[in-house]
Structures are given as C-alpha cells and as structure tokens.
Design a protein around this nucleic acid. Structure first.
Lengths: 225, 225
DNA sequence: TGGTAACGTGAGCTTTTGCTCATGTTTACC
DNA sequence: GGTAAACATGAGCAAAAGCTCACGTTACCA
C-alpha cells in the first residue's frame, strides 16, 4: 500500500519533491490561517510560491491536500508516541507517565500549530479513514497502557477508557493552546495532568505516585469507594 | 440592543414569523446533515419549503443563519441551565450535582442534535462573539459553583477550572453522542461523571458524597496528598 | 373596498473556486 | 548534444453557490 492513490503523480525528481513539501507546508499554514473551508487551492499555491498547475500535478483535488497533511502528521505523531514511550515504563509512576505524555504532546503542538486545525477537521469525509487511524493510535496507546496496568478490565472497558482519555486530552490540549502566553498554557495543562491522573488512578486501580514496577501483575492499590 | 442587525428585516406578521422559524429549523437540519461548509442556502430554503428570496428577506447572508441558530440555542441553553440549578443546591452532593448536570445536558443534546454541529463550528468568525458568550455561560456556571463551594480559590483559579470543566464536558458529551446506542452513550457519560467528580472534588476540596449543606463556608474534606 | 406595506417567488446575475490544458522549461540518460 | 520524460506555468473554463430584483400575492387598516 503506497501513498500514490492520493496523488495524481508521484514526484521523482528532487525539485518536485521539494515542491510537494512546500505545497504541504503552505497548505498547513493557509489552513491554519483561514480554516480548510475558506482556504482555496490558489491560496495554497501562491503561498508555496508555485503555480496552481503544479499543485494539481501532484494532488488530484483540495481534499487530497488535507489527506496528505493528515498522513504527514500521522507519521510525526507515531514518532512522538514511540519517543514518549520510555524504555522502562515500569520504573515510572502513573503521575509521571501522564505528565511526560502531556508535556510531550504540548511541545509537539507548539511546534506543529497546524495540527490543531487538522484535528478540528476530523469529521471531514475524505479524512475519516486516515484520521480515525491516528486518533485510534492515541486512544490505543492509552488503552494498551490501561490493559497492561489493570488486567482485570474487560476489553470493552479498556476501549472506553482509551476513547475518553483521548477525547479529554485532545480537548484540553486544544484549550491550552488557545492561549498565547506560556503561563496560561501551563495552568491548563496542569489541570489536565491532575484530571487524567485522578481518573486513570481510580479507573485502573493504580496509585498515583508508586513506581509501576513495584505493583503486581493484577490491579492493586485500589482505595476508597 | 435588538436582534435586528442580523436580519435584513424583522418579521412582523404571523406567517413570516413562522417562516423564519421554519428556515431556522431547516438550517439546523441541513447543517447537521451536510455540515455548515457543504450546506447551501438553497438547500436550506428548499428544506424549509420556501423560496430562496424569502430566506434572504430575513437573513442577510448564510452566516446570519448560523448566528441566529446560535442565538436560539443560547436561549435554550439558558433555560436548561436554570432548570438544572436545583432550588436547594446545598441539599445535594457534589456527585449528585454533576450527575444531574451531565444527564440533563445529554438529554438536551438528544433533543437538539444540531447543537453538536454548532459547537463544532465554534471557531467560525461570525460566531465567536455570540458563541463565546454561551460557552462562557456554561463555564461561568461551573466557575460560580466552584467559587461558592471553595471560597479559598483565587478568581483566576475559578476561571481556569470553569474553562477546563466546560471543555471536558463538551468533549465527552460529543464523544458520547457519536454513539447511536443508548448503552454506549451511557458508558461514556458514566466515565464523564467519574472524571468530573474526582476532579472537582479534589480541586475544590469538597467530598464527593457529603451533602453540601453540611459543609462550612470554606473548603473542608480535602484528603490525600 | 381601496390602498399600502409586508410578504413571497424563482429565474438568473455575479462572483468565486476548483480544476484543465496548451505551451514552455528543466532534468535525466544515451 | 539530442531526445524524451518529467516538471512548471497561468490564463481561463465550467460548475457551484451566494445573492438580487422585478413582479406577483396576502394581510392590515381606514
């Protein structure tokens, strides 16, 4: 399975490969500024300092730009996910894992502001297939962690927890990055960490500040009602 | 300040008032089905069983439909908010308040499926002014409750808590209502209740299951780290 | 009952925008 | 250096969508 079907023609020379990248960068910037609906392909071509004909040489239509962007971000997200998965997750605490994850994703969003716009276009028909995969990627990451830390949970419960955590993280990261000042962002992210820690700790039956390695294979440390 | 500036002309006769309502209902349905960007004013007029000319007689442009819809939902939301504010909030527990609030809002969304679409259009330039008000409405409701239950919090903290809670509730309600089956919705809403209860209980220093009336004016019952 | 203003209609004008294609330029390969 | 393929260009086409306007209809009021 190659990425070809999205593009009218694959670039084979260096200059056209650079051009395709420039077009995607331009699309990212224009979509961020105007939103996908308001942005035009001519805008994108102009921003990329190329002609509209060149854009349509490599992208069959406007939607293809969105799909290609989603694929590019998907790859970056995958890299981020593997980077955020520590070598020995058992040595960390639940709170530490969550804090690192949220900080890492926040840094990613700061470096990739267009990604928020893309998330906002998640319901676009052309995107659902590809996007669902990377949304599921994040949810699956959390779900996998949950299943590992709390084997007593059913598969369905793990699924719900993953979806819920993904939705909340996505919403709070978006909220945080509405603020331009780092201080306001941090305040929101701090709340996100607290909320996720409380929730996952209770839901998985894992204490917040105990190294995960010291826990048994099954859920322990459940407290309260 | 009247709603006139949004409309080319205010309806004065009964038939035109009914027509305006029909147009708004049609817009709501069409935006839900196609999304705002894909929907056309001709679609809306056809769905309302009226002519495109009549639509433009009362609405200056397509954006005005969105704004008018937002205003109508704003009024409904306000009614919902006052309905969800019990006569004696002190008699209820934090968990009960949150549960009732989430259930009430869920019922509202079920009866007003177009509202989710509107939320999704929150970043539309024509909407930011009016919408921000009703988003703030929900956040302010929670913020007000927080300030009342936890007077030790600073005004800034209350603001952040309100925003965060609003964002999370909005995200999880949207997630819940992606499912068609009531069971799946309830599963998600159950997680939302748990998460909000844990978060607000910790953040406000209010126990989950103690009647709020039995608490002193300042925060008590804070536990753990 | 007549007159006026509000209301209703839809063909079609205007603008926008996604997209094409004929023409010209650059690169790769012999 | 020659040739073929890849690449690049942008004027402009076709379709779509927002919106107008001239004309007809209904409701109110004296």
């Amino acid at each position: 399975m190659e990425t070809a079907p999205q593009r009218r023609r694959d670039p084979v020379q260096a200059r056209s490969r650079a051009r395709v990248d420039a077009i995607l960068d331009a699309a990212d910037a224009v979509f961020l500024e105007l939103g996908f609906a308001e942005a035009t392909t001519n805008h994108v071509a102009a921003r990329a300092q190329t002609s509209i004909g060149s854009l349509y040489r490599f992208f069959p239509d406007k939607d293809a730009l969105l799909v290609a962007l989603a694929e590019r971000y998907g790859a970056r997200m995958q890299a981020l996910a593997s980077q955020l998965t520590p070598m020995d997750p058992e040595g960390a605490t639940l709170r530490g894992l969550i804090s690192d994850g949220i900080d890492g994703f926040s840094a990613f969003l700061l470096a990739n502001p267009g990604f928020v716009t893309l998330i906002h276009q998640a319901r676009h028909p052309a995107l659902t297939a590809g996007r669902r995969a990377q949304e599921g990627q994040m949810a699956a990451l959390i779900g996998g962690l949950s299943a590992k830390l709390a084997p007593q949970l059913t598969a369905e419960e793990v699924l719900v927890i993953g979806d819920v955590a993904q939705a909340v993280l996505s919403a709070l990261q978006t909220l945080a990055h509405l603020h331009d000042e780092a201080q306001a962002r941090e305040a929101t992210l701090s709340e996100a960490k607290l909320m996720m820690t409380l929730y996952l700790s209770r839901r998985l039956g894992v204490p917040e500040d105990v190294p995960l390695a010291s826990l048994g294979g099954d859920g322990v440390g459940q407290r309260g009602a």
